[in-house]
């Protein structure tokens, strides 16, 4: 920037931030993108494309290893593991996506509202969030399961609510910084309303941070949802879900047949790692793309 002051005639060439951002992510970044694309495809088409009925149980095949078109073998109840992984991608991936989306929506709204209005509103909302912040998401989900009965919806909503103060806190700082920029003051003097300023100007300028928060939360949500389903408080067995599969694989695991739990855990870890990696990259690059 200082060079621009010293050399006002310097014409900065047209920059291509998106291209630069992509080229910066490297091999791991591309692998991450491939994993996420695969997970999304599975979430959408898995339940249609799966080779066998994921709930068809034949105890004579219990804990039988891979053969023929049963690429991942059978679980302790003689169900095709590959079919269950494909079927379970939908609740696992979309469930985590749903949690991240709701948490980001609530958190962003609170962050922008508190940053914009400030004063007593900010103080009271921030104090409320600090209290909520102290609750671990899983604990809130357990409470929700106790009150509303165990289901993906109640667990997901509880997690989303538990995550939202985290998003709100991170984004509020960014929103406050943006709110203090003189371009916002200049547009206020133009008579622009709060809604237009927040939605058209403030929000886009913190959007990369929002996306980064969303991807990081997606990873958290996937792990926490799996843990909740593992505890039997989220997705209910026999419905296929990666978290449920880890739990169901326990018995096989103890019998010396780990492939069921391992496959489900590997799927979870791969997607979480890919999403977290990209999320952190986005977070880092969002800071120097525009200014």
């Amino acid at each position: 920037m200082s060079t621009e002051i010293l050399d006002p005639v310097a014409e900065a060439e047209e920059s291509a931030p998106s291209r630069r951002r992509l080229s910066r992510i490297g091999v791991i970044g591309w692998v991450s993108i491939a994993i996420i694309a695969l997970a999304l495809l599975l979430a959408i088409f898995g339940p249609i494309l799966r080779p066998f009925d994921p709930n068809l149980s034949d105890l004579s095949f219990a804990n039988v290893g891979p053969f023929g078109s049963h690429l991942l073998g059978f679980d302790g109840q003689g169900r095709d593991v590959l079919s269950r992984i494909m079927e379970g991608a939908r609740t696992t991936v979309l469930g985590a996506g749903f949690v991240a989306l709701i948490a980001v929506a609530i958190g962003t709204t609170l962050a922008i509202a508190t940053a914009w209005f400030g004063g007593k509103f900010d103080a009271s909302v921030s104090a409320g969030l600090d209290v909520l912040f102290a609750f671990p998401g899983i604990l809130l989900a357990v409470v929700a399961a106790a009150v509303f009965g165990p289901s993906l919806l109640s667990a997901g909503l509880a997690l989303a609510i538990a995550y939202s103060p985290y998003v709100a806190r991170v984004l509020r700082g960014a929103a406050l910084k943006e709110r203090a920029m003189t371009y916002i003051a200049a547009l206020e003097v133009q008579g622009f309303g709060a809604w237009r300023l927040c939605v058209r100007h403030l929000l886009p300028n913190i959007s990369s941070l929002i996306v980064a928060q969303g991807t990081i939360l997606f990873g958290f949500a996937m792990v926490d949802l799996a843990a909740i389903s593992f505890l039997g408080l989220g997705v209910q067995s026999p419905q296929a879900d990666w978290g449920v599969m880890v739990s169901e694989g326990k018995t096989s695991l103890l019998q010396g047949y780990p492939i069921v739990s391992l496959t489900a855990v590997l799927c979870i870890v791969a997607v979480v790692a890919a999403v977290s990696f990209l999320g952190e990259r986005l977070d880092a690059s969002s800071k120097d793309v525009l200014r």
Binding site: T182, A186, V189, R291
Partner: peptide, 14 residues
Amino acid sequence: QIVFQDPYSSLDPR
């Protein structure tokens, strides 16, 4: 209307 001092923060970067 007003024109502020700092030319760097006075425009929406997007």
